[in-house]
């Protein structure tokens, strides 16, 4: 019974996150359009696109791994959600976070990437492989500042449990990691830019160079699954950063507001800056953000 209740709440949370992810994507697209003096899409266009993709009638598959790729990808997104506590001090909205801590989430991000890489790989399209090789190469560099930031705050709070980290940031805005450990926050937020795949780190999907990168061959329901994952992943990664650096959320409203602004940060930067090539972005990421991350550790140790 307890398990059933738990599962019910988890599914409800997932439903909220998914919808918020789709709406947020719409709102952001709308903002971008207005910024470039267009009317832009309807806020609900992501829903329509999703429904359209699920209602494509024909599918084709390149093999078992091609088929499983989107499943892995969505499992990656949903899995992060499952292991993430959403609302501070709330038993019912802490999902399955009893199974693992921050490290689990940091490594579970690879799960989806691997599945996607393998699925796209079996598609046999060279552009898919090019996109993946770029994505993975860039991801290694993106992870370094994030790791340093995680080490920094884990040492600062002497815990790896996300709920615990959130609990330690309660009691006023000045207790947020943003203010207690600003350098780690800066390093991590630069990583966040890369993780979200907006400019300047969006050469992976670069439609002008190689048709859309890894998902070149995906269509219809497969694409629908990938879009579903995208909506979830954007929100849940924002939730992760919210929990680590911005004091977590004590209710759903706070979660929605905070994740919006965190996600908007990546969009904002993406609108302003041009695109890096992979061999430019890696050295860049390994210089300034890593330096900031190291400084944050030094800062905490002192």
């Amino acid at each position: 019974m307890e398990l059933a209740t738990k599962t019910g709440f988890v599914l409800l949370g997932l439903f909220i996150i998914l919808n918020w992810g789709l709406i947020m994507a719409g709102i952001i697209r709308k903002i971008i359009a207005r910024a470039s003096m267009r009317r832009g899409i309807s806020v609900f266009q992501p829903y329509i696109n999703l429904i359209k993709n699920y209602s494509i009638r024909s599918q084709l598959t390149h093999g078992v791994m091609f088929y499983l790729g989107p499943v892995f990808r969505l499992s990656g997104g949903v899995g992060i959600f499952l292991f993430m506590p959403l609302i501070h001090d709330s038993e019912i909205w802490s999902n399955f976070s009893f199974a693992g801590d921050l490290i689990l989430i940091a490594y579970f991000m690879f799960f989806g990437m691997l599945g996607m890489a393998l699925g796209a790989g079996e598609g046999g399209h060279p552009y898919s492989a090019i996109g993946i090789s770029r994505g993975l190469a860039q991801f290694t560099a993106i992870e370094v500042p994030l790791t340093l930031a995680i080490l920094s705050i884990a040492f600062q709070y002497n815990t790896l449990s996300i709920s615990e980290i959130v609990a330690r940031q309660q009691g006023g805005i000045l207790n947020w990691t943003l203010f207690t450990n600003p350098l780690a926050t800066i390093a991590a937020m630069i990583s966040f830019l890369g993780a979200m795949g907006h400019a300047p780190f969006n050469v992976v999907m670069a439609p002008q160079e190689n048709p859309i990168g890894p998902p070149t061959e995906y269509h219809g329901t497969f694409l629908g699954v990938l879009q579903t994952n995208r909506a979830i992943l954007h929100v849940i990664e924002s939730v992760l950063f919210m929990n680590l650096f911005f004091g977590g959320a004590s209710n759903w409203f706070e979660l929605i507001v905070k994740t919006f602004f965190i996600y908007f940060w990546s969009v904002f930067v993406g609108m302003v800056f041009p695109r890096f090539r992979v061999d430019q972005s890696i050295p860049w990421l390994l210089k300034i953000p890593v330096l900031i991350g190291i400084l944050s550790i030094v800062f905490i140790l002192l």
Binding site: A99, G100, D101, L102, I103, L160
Partner: peptide, 8 residues
């Protein structure tokens, strides 16, 4: 520091 449950 943290916890982890392989089985779960």
């Amino acid at each position: 520091l943290g916890y982890w449950s392989g089985f779960n």
